[in-house]
Simulated assay, not measured.
Amino acid sequence: MTEELSVWQLVANASLTVQAVMALLFIFSAISWFMIVQRGFYFRACNRAMQNFEHQFWSGMDLSQLFRQGSADIESGASFVGMESIFRAGFKEFSRLRQQPGVDADAVMQGAQRSMRVATSREEEQMDTHLPFLATVGSISPYVGLFGTVWGIMTSFQSLATMNQATLATVAPGISEALVATAMGLFAAIPAVMAYNRYSSRVEILLNKYDSFSDEFYGILHRQAHTAPMPPTQPSQSKG
């Protein structure tokens, strides 16, 4: 408890410039932790949605039925992320182009592939949300804290010029106040850097899985597009 009070005392006794630096670093840290928690929940939801959709997709369910099921979920207020968004974008364009007369199979596949690529880019943008801010906080916070420390030490030495006798007791408080800024800079930077590296790795892993799914789904659509529809079966006539 005494250490906590001493730290708060150092903050309260610091100069206005150093206090402004500490306040800025505290804001950086608070926003970073909010984004870290938010991204954690988001990536957990992405992994859960991907596992559920993969189970449905590879269960042998008809693609049209899977698409209609998703459309019904949309009407009930559901939203899709990850693989299901890519699937819906590709299958919707595939079905639309295939129903148009005069469109060959290659054009159908090009349209479906383009739609899946756009959907993947949108998913990448969603996953990269807040990561640039975390990278910025991780890179500049130590320098902002160092600026506060340098300013505080400079102010302490300027105050020594007016003293007849300088002792460690007169210098130590000012230097301690200044060093708090560096500590706060590191406190803001370290979690931000760790979260940025972790989430960047997750983005790369998910994008690789999305690309693999797009290739596999493209192969399935390619087989359907180049398969001639079966002629309707004629009802058999009974011999009288």
Results as ranks from 00 to 15, higher is better:
Ile86Pro: 01
Gly102Leu: 02
Arg122Asn: 13
Gly90Ala: 13
Glu124Phe: 13
Glu124Pro: 04
Tyr143Gln: 08
Ser115Met: 08
Arg117His: 13
Thr129Lys: 14
Val118Cys: 06
Leu134Asn: 00
Asp104Lys: 04
His130Tyr: 15
Arg114Asp: 13
Thr136Gly: 10
Arg96Ala: 05
Gly90Gln: 06
Ala107Pro: 04
Ala105Val: 04
Gly111His: 02
Arg114Tyr: 09
Arg88Cys: 11
Ser141Pro: 07
Phe87Ile: 14
Arg117Asp: 15
Glu123Ala: 10
Ser115Asp: 05
Arg117Phe: 09
Gln100Asp: 09
Gly138Thr: 03
Asp106Lys: 14
Val103Ile: 15
Gln100Pro: 05
Phe91Ala: 00
Phe87Ala: 08
Met127Phe: 07
Glu124Ile: 15
Ser115His: 07
Gly138Ser: 08
Arg98Ile: 09
Thr136Val: 07
Ala112Tyr: 00
Leu131Met: 10
Ala105Ile: 09
Pro132Cys: 02
Phe133Glu: 03
Ala135Arg: 02
Glu93Lys: 00
Pro142Glu: 07
Met109Ala: 05
Ser139Pro: 12
Lys92Thr: 11
Gln99Thr: 10
Ile140Ala: 05
Asp128Glu: 14
Gly90Glu: 00
Arg98Phe: 01
Thr136Phe: 03
Thr129Tyr: 09
Leu134Glu: 01
Met127Trp: 11
Thr129Asp: 07
Glu93Asp: 15
Arg122His: 12
Ser121Ile: 14
Arg96Lys: 11
Glu124Gln: 14
Glu123Arg: 06
Val118Ala: 10
Met116Arg: 02
Asp106Phe: 13
Leu134Lys: 00
Ile86Tyr: 01
Gln100Gly: 06
Ala107Gly: 11
Asp104Cys: 10
His130Thr: 07
Thr129His: 11
Arg98Pro: 04
Ala105Lys: 02
Ser139Ala: 15
Gln99Trp: 08
Val108Ser: 00
Asp104Leu: 09
Asp128Cys: 10
Gly90His: 01
Ala119Cys: 06
Ser139Asn: 15
Ser115Pro: 06
Ala107Asp: 10
Val118Ser: 10
Asp104Trp: 07
Leu134Asp: 02
Met127Asp: 04
Tyr143Glu: 08
Phe87Thr: 03
Phe94Asp: 00
Asp106Met: 13
Gly111Arg: 04
Met127Ala: 11
Phe133Pro: 00
Phe91Trp: 13
Pro142Ala: 08
Glu124Val: 15
Phe133His: 04
Phe94Trp: 04
Val137Glu: 05
Ser95Pro: 04
Phe133Thr: 01
